[in-house]
Amino acid sequence: MLNIISYFWPLNEKRMKQGIKDTQFKFPGQVDFYRGKVRDVYIFEQSIAVVATDRISAFDVVLPKAIPYKGQVLNQIAYHFLSSTATLVPNWVTASPDPNVTIGKRCVPFKVEMVIRGYLAGHAWREYRDGKRSLCGVALPEGLKENDPLPEPIITPTTKADQGHDEDISREDILAGGLVAEEDYLVLEKYTRTLFEKGTEMAREKGLILVDTKYEFGRYGDEILLIDEIHTPDSSRYFYREGYAERQEQGLPQKQLSKEFVRQWLIENGFQGKPGQSIPEMKPDIIESISSRYIELYEHITGKTFVPANGSDMEERIRRSILENI
Score class of each variant (00 low, 15 high):
I56M: 00
V51I: 15
W9T: 15
L252W: 09
Y185H: 14
D162H: 12
R319M: 07
D212K: 02
Y244C: 03
E324R: 12
S134L: 00
V51P: 09
H165A: 05
K283P: 00
L226K: 04
W92A: 07
S312F: 00
D168C: 10
R247W: 11
F8R: 08
V307D: 14
K206D: 07
K70Q: 05
K259T: 10
I56W: 00
A52S: 15
G104Q: 03
T156S: 06
P284W: 10
D98S: 06
R237V: 11
A49I: 04
R35F: 00
L140Y: 09
L135C: 13
T156R: 09
T53C: 11
L208S: 01
K198N: 09
R247D: 13
A161R: 08
I154A: 01
S6H: 11
S96C: 11
S289C: 06
E189R: 02
K70W: 02
K255D: 15
D40R: 01
D173Y: 05
I67T: 08
R193C: 04
R193W: 05
Y79K: 15
E268Y: 12
S235Y: 00
I103E: 07
A124H: 14
N91K: 12
W92Y: 10
P308H: 06
A245R: 11
H123C: 00
P99L: 10
P141G: 12
R263Q: 05
T213D: 07
W265F: 07
V108H: 10
I287W: 06
R317F: 01
F59H: 05
L82E: 09
T23A: 03
A66G: 06
I77G: 05
K304E: 13
L208W: 00
I227K: 06
R219N: 10
Q254K: 14
D98Y: 04
P68C: 08
Y240I: 09
L257P: 05
Y34M: 06
E299G: 10
L266N: 12
A139V: 06
T23I: 05
H165K: 03
E152Q: 12
L74S: 04
F25C: 07
T87R: 13
M1Y: 14
R237C: 12
E281Y: 04
G207K: 13
K190P: 02
L226F: 03
R35C: 01
P280G: 08
C107P: 03
L11I: 05
P10Q: 13
F306S: 02
L74H: 09
V112A: 06
E324N: 13
K26G: 02
G311C: 07
G143W: 10
K132A: 10
E146A: 12
K160N: 03
Y34G: 01
S96L: 01
Q76S: 13
S134I: 01
R129V: 02
V31P: 02
M202V: 01
